[in-house]
């Protein structure tokens, strides 16, 4: 699914944010990505959703080397990924409904299908009554749920989430984590960047720990190990 091969990354002529990242995230796996603030979690996720390309090494996603793939074809990979941004990145002029519907519209799905699926998902995340509201009129937690709904609506093969429960109370947070569990059981590969040890402990998935630009793996039952991940959840 995702294979980092001695990947390094830095912003233009700045210092290295990531270096020697060497990891294989298998299809159908579920990982937490954790580490101190500023350790590069967001940058690592950004490489995975093709917000940036590696400055060193090779990154393979969905059997394509993204460094070699022409930019006109990157959308093929992006369309298979659902992203929950830390700052949500909702389109503020659009209703909650239209924000969630956006990935399906980009995929040119029939409007009837869009209406049914989006309404159902919005009900599920408890925002059925707010579907016509604009994001700025909603609370942080509500916006986060819209962002999550937008990320999962098109049934992505890979779900990347940056602190997806940061603004949510524990009840809603766990409910959404359960949604991720369900998606994972249906085959979606999941990587969630989080600080929330409570959640990591409860769900017990392997942790990718990023510190000082290096990545290590820690499984809940085993001692930390580095290198390629053989574990698939």
């Amino acid at each position: 699914m995702i294979r980092f091969d001695k990947v390094g990354f830095r912003y233009e002529s700045g210092p290295d944010i990531l270096s020697g990242i060497d990891v294989h995230i298998r299809a159908g796996s579920y990982h937490f990505l954790t580490g101190p603030s500023g350790s590069g979690k967001t940058s690592l996720l950004s490489l995975m959703y093709l917000g940036h390309r590696p400055t060193r090494g090779n990154l393979h996603m969905f059997d394509h080397n993204v460094g070699l793939l022409p930019r006109e074809r990157l959308f093929e990979i992006r369309q298979r990924i659902g992203i929950v941004f830390q700052d949500f990145r909702l389109l503020e002029h659009m209703s909650a409904f239209d924000n969630v519907a956006l990935p399906l519209r980009i995929l040119n799905r029939p409007e009837k299908e869009i209406r049914n699926n989006v309404a159902e998902l919005l009900d599920w995340v408890g925002l059925g009554d707010s579907k016509d509201k604009l994001p700025p009129t909603l609370s942080g937690g509500q916006q986060q749920r819209i962002a999550i709904a937008r990320a999962v609506i098109a049934r992505p093969k890979l779900l990347l989430a940056d602190e997806p429960t940061g603004n949510l109370d524990d009840t809603i947070g766990f409910r959404l984590m359960n949604l991720f569990e369900q998606l994972n059981r249906m085959g979606t590969t999941i990587v969630i960047a989080t600080h929330n040890t409570h959640i990591m402990e409860k769900f017990g998935h392997p942790r990718l720990i990023l510190a000082g630009g290096k990545l290590t793996l820690e499984t809940p039952t085993e001692a930390p190990l580095t290198g390629q991940l053989k574990h698939a959840v």
Partner: peptide, 12 residues
């Protein structure tokens, strides 16, 4: 906004 569309898979 353009970047969001771009990142969630919109073609050019």
């Amino acid at each position: 906004q353009v970047e969001i569309l771009h990142l969630i898979g919109a073609t050019d």
